[in-house]
Design a binder for these strands. Structure first.
Lengths: 118, 118
DNA sequence: AATCGTTATGTTTACCAGTATATAGCGTTA
DNA sequence: TAACGCTATATACTGGTAAACATAACGATT
């Protein structure tokens, strides 16, 4: 196909974000899910936060927010003991992760699809 | 259908936002499109801004941003004259409005669709 | 009982987007 | 030519969010 006299290529992109809202606002978003995954990987909120260059305080608040909006906690925390304690992502947490990535993938497809012919 | 022993109704909602990006970042978003529509309705950036309780400065910046990212301006501004001047939304602006609402509607459908069974 | 690294939580600081304020320039109309 | 209300633009202020800082509590292990 000859491109010479065609309209200029579309250099606009459709972009966006999605999140899952619960009773108190955001329940799950991109950052929260990545945090969950890292908590799972490191078995520690503080290590997860460090790995994302996020302040522990902030990470802790996010976990509180998620737990308080879930019937079953997404993260179980242990205080004290050998190594000072730690945290694990529950089955419900794993489901939340999967659920979000599923919606996220569809959303990415949607954006790519609708980015053509803007 | 008997609801007694069913899983609790889903009280999560999938939410999100979308915007169209150009070379310098956001080109069109919800607020910008509403602003465009009001500029069209009032034939004035300042009246449009007032009607949205948005500062004139902010509105003006948004218009600059949109115009600078569009091959053809979306708003044409007139300085001085009867009434001090004014602004009109161009054909390209109208197209931008339509284009965004179209994507927005599809996005709303997507969110509603994916909100079921979270 | 001393240690360790984590969870838990309050307090202060830094930052930035948007608002407020102020002023100049413009050009048609009366 | 005076006036009007809008565009144009600089500077200062503000409020809310995230980061930074600072401790305290905890409990298995040694």
């Amino acid at each position: 196909m000859d491109n010479e006299n065609e309209e200029a290529m579309n250099d606009y992109r459709l972009r966006g974000r999605i999140w899952i809202e619960g009773a108190e606002g955001t329940f799950l978003g991109y950052g929260r899910v990545v945090l969950l995954e890292r908590i799972r990987d490191y078995a520690s909120i503080s290590a997860a936060a460090r790995s994302m260059k996020m302040s522990y305080r902030h990470a802790w608040k996010l976990v509180e927010s998620m737990n308080s909006q879930s019937r079953v906690p997404v993260v179980e925390k242990t205080t004290g003991g050998r190594g000072g304690g730690g945290s694990v992502v529950t089955q419900a947490g794993e489901q939340a992760i999967t659920c979000f990535w599923s919606a996220y993938q569809d959303f990415k497809d949607f954006l790519a699809q609708r980015s053509e012919n803007l």
